[in-house]
Structure formats: C-alpha cells, structure tokens
Design a protein around this nucleic acid. Structure first.
Lengths: 191, 191
DNA sequence: GCAGATTATGAGAGTTACTATCATTTGGTA
DNA sequence: TACCAAATGATAGTAACTCTCATAATCTGC
C-alpha cells in the first residue's frame, strides 16, 4: 500500500472519529459538516470526497463483509440461523472490548436519531440480499428462491425489532436479545 | 365540518396529487418543492404547513389505521397472520380499482427512489408496534411481550422483503406475493 | 533525483430543503 | 357588522450538498 492510500485511510478514520465524537457530545442534528471538517482539519469539500453524506459517517461499518464470511464458513450441520448465531460469536470474538463498545454506541446512535434511522433502510434491504445469499449457499437453493428470500426478510425483521427495542431502553444489552430473537425465529416463531 | 376544514383537506389532497404527478413525470429528485407549490397554486411556505417534508407527500397514507381496525375486527378463530391476511382483503375490498392502483403506484415509487426508501424506515418501526398491538389483543398477551414483538418484527420483515422484491420487478403483482409471504411465515418459514 | 502525468485538496459560487418571523388576508362568530 | 382566530405569503436565514477550477501533493518513467 502506497503512501497515498495509507493517508486516505487515515483521513477517513479521522473524519469518522471526530464526527462520532461530536455527535455524542452535542447531538447529531446540532453537529454541522463544517464543524466535523474543522475538527478533522480538512476543508468541507474534502469531507464530501470521503463521505457522500453526513449520515454516512455514522453508518459506515466495515464489519458486514466479515460477518458474511464467517456465516458462510460455519459448520455445515448448523441450521441457517445456527450459522448466523455462530457468525455473530466469531465476529465478536475477533474484536476488542473497546471495539465492541464502539459498535454498540454507533448502533444505538443510529437507531435513536430519527434522521439516521431512515438511512439504515438501505442497509436492511441489502441485508436481506446478503443473508439470503448465505442461506442459499448453505442449503443449495437459488439466492432468489422465494422461501429463502422470505426467510431472510424475517431474519432482518427480527433484527430490526431487536434494535428498535434496544434503542428505546438505555441499559439494554442487545446482544443477548439478538440471540434470543434468532432462537425464537429458528423455532418457527411460536406465539 | 366547516368550510375551513373542508378547504384544508382539499388543499392537502391537491398538493399531494400534484406532487405525485410531478414525481411520476420528471422523477422525485428532479421535482422541487417550489414546483409542487406552483402546481398546487400555493406558496412554498404553505407547502410546509401541510407536509413537514417533501418526502411526506409520497408517504402520507390514511389507510394504515383502517387496516389495523380491520385486523382487530377479524374473527377470533383466525391465527394472527390469518387476521392480517383477512384485513388486507377487507381493506382492498373497500377501495375502488383506481384507488388500489394509486396505492400500488405510490408503494413502488417509494421503494424505487433511494431518497424515499429511507423515509419508510420509521413507518416500518411503527408497523412493528401496530402489528404487535393487534397480535397482543388477539392472543391476550402483553403488547411488549418478547415473543409478540419478535413475531411482529418477522411480519414486517417479510413485508419489507416482498416490497423490495416487487420494486425491482416492474410487472410484479405484489399483492399475491404478499399473501404468499404471510402464509409461508404462518407455517414457520420452512426452508 | 527530476520532469511530467495523476490525483488529492481547497476555495468559491450555486441549488434546494427546510425554519422562523411578521404582515396581510380570510373564515368563523357574536 | 365588528371582532377574533386561523391561514397565507413574503422575506430572510441556515445547512447539506454539487460543480468547477486552481493549486498542491504523490506517483511514475527516466
């Protein structure tokens, strides 16, 4: 990796770090792009070269692809949901406590700020594709198979429900809740 | 209803009609609030008195509460999902063909325009609450019961999946797909 | 190590969604 | 008719973007 790329990665990380700090300190809405740019010591123009929108600083998360990899790599005898649960455990195991706390903080921020909540929609829609892909691969079905896609929709739905719930409760531990939600779904969602 | 209220309802409808027409004719992004206001013969200030955001003109939909009513009123022997399916049939039965077509058009518009897609997130989050409320009432459980909320999340998830799918395919008939998705969910989502 | 081609940056101007304020008009009411 | 409350429009302002162009930093072939 040349100097150029390293510098870009560093600038990107710096912008995001300052953005998240400012969001935490004074709220998302009260933080302007100009403030973020000033804190990161770049011009506002440059900000938009690194992030397409202000929202993106809170949403950008390189974990997703890692998670999908982990899910695909889970033992074949697990059910699709078993694989997802296993993948969560694997990914969390690779992160330090601080990193987990950062993810948690960002997660809650996103679900609490109405302006940000909207922006995750695309991530959820994309999530359906990714999770359907995993299930398709593990069960030997087509990724656009109706049952697979519908199932993936339900998976994303229970995630959504869990996150919304967790965002409302400040002390909520959403990781155990997430696991519980997946187990319930795996059992066919008995009411 | 006095003249004042009737006039307001008419203005609201006029704004929305012109907005949706312009979105269809020239795209959502290319349509400005000023253009909508001009078409509806009101000032831009007035536009924002009727709709909090430009997005809201595409999202505002008085059907939801009607649907919830219908779901609560379904025969007690139906499963919660059976009740939802019944409610869909009842609500559609009350609309004219033109109205159904309007709903369909708006639904597709919202899921196709990235800027609008984000805005439905809140509606889905709210949808979880509403559907959980219906299920809770019909099964005699608490509305914040874990299983109920998780199940409601899954319901919303399969709706989301169905709509996303339908938006990608221009000829898709999403109503039968929706029913099929609910039946699959009712069966415990076998893969 | 240097010249020339790429690429990153910053500055400036412009658009648009939205907010706040205030004067004016319009509809409801006694 | 006279008064009050609510609806409207005009104006000014903020902030998130977008576009363009000049300058500065890196990279590449010699």
């Amino acid at each position: 990796m040349g100097l150029r790329e390293r510098k870009k990665a560093k600038t990107r990380a710096t912008i995001q770090r300052h953005a998240l700090r400012l969001f935490r300190e004074q709220g998302y809405g009260a933080t302007t792009v100009d403030q973020i740019a000033a804190a990161a010591e770049i011009s506002p123009s440059t900000f938009f070269r690194y992030f397409p929108t202000k929202e993106a600083t809170a949403l950008y998360d390189p974990i997703d692809p890692v998670f999908i990899e982990a899910a695909i790599g889970q033992p074949a005898e697990l059910s699709p949901i078993g694989a997802l649960r296993g993948a969560v455990r694997v990914v969390l195991g690779q992160l330090s406590e601080d990193e987990i706390e950062d993810v948690r903080r960002r997660q809650l921020l996103v679900f609490r700020e109405p302006e940000l909540r909207g922006a995750i929609m695309d991530q959820f829609a994309e999530g359906i594709d990714l999770i359907a892909g995993v299930a398709a691969r593990r069960t030997g079905r087509a990724p656009d198979d109706f049952a697979v896609r519908n199932w993936a929709g339900a998976v994303v739905g229970v995630l959504l429900s869990t996150f919304v719930q967790a965002a409302a409760d400040p002390d909520a531990e959403y990781l155990p809740a997430l696991d519980k939600a997946l187990v319930h779904l795996d059992a066919g969602l008995p009411l």
